[in-house]
């Protein structure tokens, strides 16, 4: 069974990303919520959900409202433009529940909420430390080698952090591609690594420090097409050998230091051009 997901969101933000209408409980929107549960099956809502969550459903009946209330949900979001009847609204009002309506379908709604909530994706990548002072944002992550099922998630996470800060889209794209290549290198070749993201108004820096077999010939590894990916990795579509050259192409500064048998340190920088 999946562990509980800690959301870092309130309903105001959810309302915004879903372009939702609040038809009940307008005054309660700053309520923090603890999770998102997406289902149309009343019995499962009762069985699996956690209190303090928000329910996303396409089933617009009073039984849903009752089960949401019994499961201690804070709010119900009806998807795809479904409108609850008077009976449901009265029940919600009496029980202090919040009701929102959105035109999104269930998948779109989940995606939008997940993207707005950086924690829902970071649950799958281990965020060790995070600090945000004025004009700088530092995040430290841990990457497990050989964890193909979660590969790529950290880059997604970095992308959403940068988007939240508000960098220019093309810069974010370059950083995300480079972070992805760096992350994949760790997943394919190393045992584990720490990744530090350092973002301020002048530059974005990513440092990946891995524990692994190291690179004997960095110059050779920088050539397009050079790959040490195993057959298994190739079958998954990885190991095209474009990793390091692709980082070089997308970054403004790249520094690689490596010690065979110990590990590799990749430092990349991206300049923020002020208008």
């Amino acid at each position: 069974m999946a562990e509980e997901l800690k959301l870092n969101l309130n309903l105001k933000r959810i309302k915004k990303v879903l372009k939702a209408d609040v038809i009940q409980g307008k005054g309660l929107l700053s309520t923090k919520i603890s999770g998102v549960y997406a289902s149309d099956l009343v019995s499962d809502v009762l069985a699996y959900s956690k209190s303090g969550s928000v329910l996303l459903t396409g089933l617009c009946t009073k039984q849903v409202a009752i089960s949401a209330y019994l499961s201690l949900f804070k709010a119900i979001i009806f998807i795809r433009g479904k409108r609850p009847n008077k009976e449901i609204l009265e029940f919600a009002e009496e029980k202090n529940m919040i009701i929102l309506l959105t035109e999104n379908d269930m998948f779109e709604a989940c995606v939008k909420i997940a993207n707005a909530d950086s924690n829902s994706i970071s649950k799958f990548v281990k965020l060790i430390e995070s600090s945000e002072k004025k004009n700088t944002s530092v995040h430290k992550f841990h990457i497990d080698g050989q964890d193909f099922s979660n590969s790529g998630l950290l880059s997604t996470q970095i992308k959403s952090i940068l988007q939240n800060i508000g960098y220019e889209p093309y810069l974010i794209k370059r950083v995300s591609i480079s972070a992805y290549e760096g992350e994949m290198n760790v997943v394919m070749h190393a045992k584990e690594a720490n990744l530090t993201l350092n973002a301020n108004e002048k530059e974005i820096q990513i440092i990946i420090n891995d524990r692994g077999k190291g690179i004997p010939d960095i110059e050779q590894a920088m050539q397009a097409g050079y790959s040490t990916a195993t057959e298994d990795q190739r079958a998954l579509g990885f190991g095209s050998g474009m990793g390091l050259p692709n980082i070089k192409k997308n970054s403004d500064e790249l520094k690689i230091t490596s010690e065979v048998g110990k590990g590799t340190k990749v430092e990349m920088k991206f300049y923020v051009i002020q208008e």
């Binding site: 989940c110 790529g152 998630l153």
Partner: peptide, 19 residues
């Protein structure tokens, strides 16, 4: 999947599936 529907969506976005 052992994940909830919502958690699985987070993973699917992570590998690049879009609405």
């Amino acid at each position: 999947s052992d994940l909830s529907t919502y958690e699985l969506v987070s993973k699917l976005i992570g590998i690049g599936l879009k609405p």
